[in-house]
Structure formats: C-alpha cells, structure tokens
C-alpha cells in the first residue's frame, strides 16, 4: 500500500508537487492526478510456479495464504498496475497497492 500514482508522471509530478501546498492529515478532498485507467489495473492475472519465477531476492511481494494455495504479487509490478482483480480459492479478491 502506497501513495504513488502521480509519480508515474515524472516531470509533471515534480511540477504538481511544487504547486501544491502541503496537505495535512485531515484533508478530505479528492485530488485528480491522472485520468481514469491511465494506470491499467490487471483483470486477467496469469501465474507461474514460484520455482519458475525470476524475481530478485530483495523484491518485495504481497502474499496471500489460503487453505490450499498461496500467491505472491510483486510490488515492483504493482507499482505499474496498482490493482489485480483475482480469484483466490474461489473467492474474488482485489490485490491493491
């Protein structure tokens, strides 16, 4: 979980930060920083066995553990996708970052 989106904008993000007064913790405004779906969520996730996966040892993952299955989602990938719409042990879940 991370506050992140507009970092995707690179130079634009820097400009946005420069223009925005610092928020405080009680800010209740919704701030539009990107068009809807500019960061594409994942709707049909594909998986591979841990033994096949080539992640870096220090790569941070989000994991979920069920009765029979376990799944890991790389946060390096989630940085670019933010949400995975998945089904885990028959239950629809949203992996969010």
């Amino acid at each position: 979980m991370k506050s992140s989106i507009a970092l995707m904008l690179g130079v634009l993000a820097a400009a946005a930060v420069a223009m925005a007064a610092p928020q405080d913790d009680r800010d209740n405004a919704l701030h539009v920083v990107l068009p809807r779906d500019a960061i594409p969520a994942i709707f049909n996730p594909e998986f591979e066995a841990a033994s096949e996966a080539r992640l870096a040892d220090h790569e941070l993952v989000i994991g979920v553990v069920g009765d029979r299955e376990q799944r890991a989602y790389s946060t390096w990938l989630l940085d670019r996708r933010e949400i995975v719409n998945d089904t885990f042990e028959g239950r629809p879940i949203a992996v969010t970052w």
Partner: peptide, 11 residues
C-alpha cells in the same frame, strides 16, 4: 480500476 484520484495521498 484505478480512478486517477488520490485521497489523503492514498489510491
């Protein structure tokens, strides 16, 4: 999906 908005700096 990703709305493109932030609330208290969260997605």
């Amino acid at each position: 999906g990703v709305s493109g908005m932030l609330f208290r700096d969260g997605l």
